[in-house]
């Protein structure tokens, strides 16, 4: 059986908000290491990979591996009934038909109990190769969100150019063009506000802004975001949170 108690409902609520528009149904794979999810988006050009490590729960118990097939929209509806500060407990039996969710207020004067039906999802599990990326850019998550949102007003796509001079986000569309260049900065008091660029070679790739804007729905989960790029492989956008991560992969657009 699974029993996982999470001190802050907000983590799960924000995580769901960050993936539910890309993925409709997915298996939550539960093992003694924690709860993970891996799913392609409906158009098969983006992949979502979530890990909530066991040590992020207190307590966490999972006797044998379980795949909980969940409709993310349904889970999101149930989680709307949880306050951000509530303590959430997830429970499932071995070979479960239902997932049980309990929301307790901080002072335990209110306990809400929900049961959600599970579904059978036959999901291909893709291997994610260990990759040494040519460019690794870490920047404030809010800055990345702002850039994607602003440039999506200009064009459907953005070209990200990482070089030793900085990282340039550029879009061109019918109404004109625009770009934002970030230089490396170091803010020792607020590391999450720094921008760092690690480069083994310059990389220039173009991506659909629709997807990037969707990925930035994870902004409330982390202060910083890391973009990792190499030529001809999918971009990795990673939000690290306490007790896990949310990663998105996106295939580059092919240049004419």
């Amino acid at each position: 059986m699974l029993e996982a108690r999470l001190a802050q409902a907000a983590v799960l609520k924000k995580t769901l908000d960050a993936i539910k528009e890309l993925v409709t149904d997915a298996n939550f794979d539960c093992s003694d290491g924690g709860i993970s999810l891996q799913a392609m988006d409906n158009s098969h050009v983006a992949l979502v990979s979530l890990l909530l490590r066991a040590d992020g729960f207190e307590p966490y118990r999972c006797d044998r591996n379980l795949a909980l097939g969940i409709n993310l929209n349904s889970l999101s509806k149930v989680l709307r009934s949880a306050q951000n500060e509530d303590i959430i407990t997830l429970k499932a039996a071995d070979d479960p038909d239902n997932l049980s969710l309990t929301f307790e207020s901080q002072n335990q004067d209110r306990i809400s109990e929900y049961e959600m039906k599970l579904m059978d999802i036959d999901q291909e599990h893709l291997g994610i190769p260990e990759t040494a990326y040519a460019a690794v850019i870490t920047m404030p998550a809010a800055e990345f969100q702002r850039i994607c949102r602003d440039l999506s007003g200009i064009s459907e796509s953005v070209t990200i150019d990482a070089s030793k001079d900085g990282v340039k986000f550029a879009s061109a569309g019918d109404i004109g063009n625009g770009s934002v260049t970030l230089k490396q900065t170091h803010n020792p008091e607020e590391p999450a506000l720094s921008t760092s660029i690690e480069l083994s070679e310059s990389v220039t790739l173009t991506f659909s802004l629709k997807y990037l804007v969707n990925f930035t729905k994870a902004t409330p989960l982390a202060g910083a975001v890391t973009l990792q790029m190499s030529n001809d492989v999918p971009l990795l956008v990673e939000y690290k949170m306490e007790g896990g991560y949310l990663r998105y992969y996106l295939a580059p657009k092919i240049q004419d």
């Binding site: 158009s43 098969h44 050009v45 992949l47 893709l126 291997g127 190769p129 260990e130 657009k253 092919i254």
Partner: peptide, 14 residues
Amino acid sequence: PTGQAQMTNFFAAS
């Protein structure tokens, strides 16, 4: 390759 093929190739490479 299309975006789909790029994803498939990359994730199948592991």
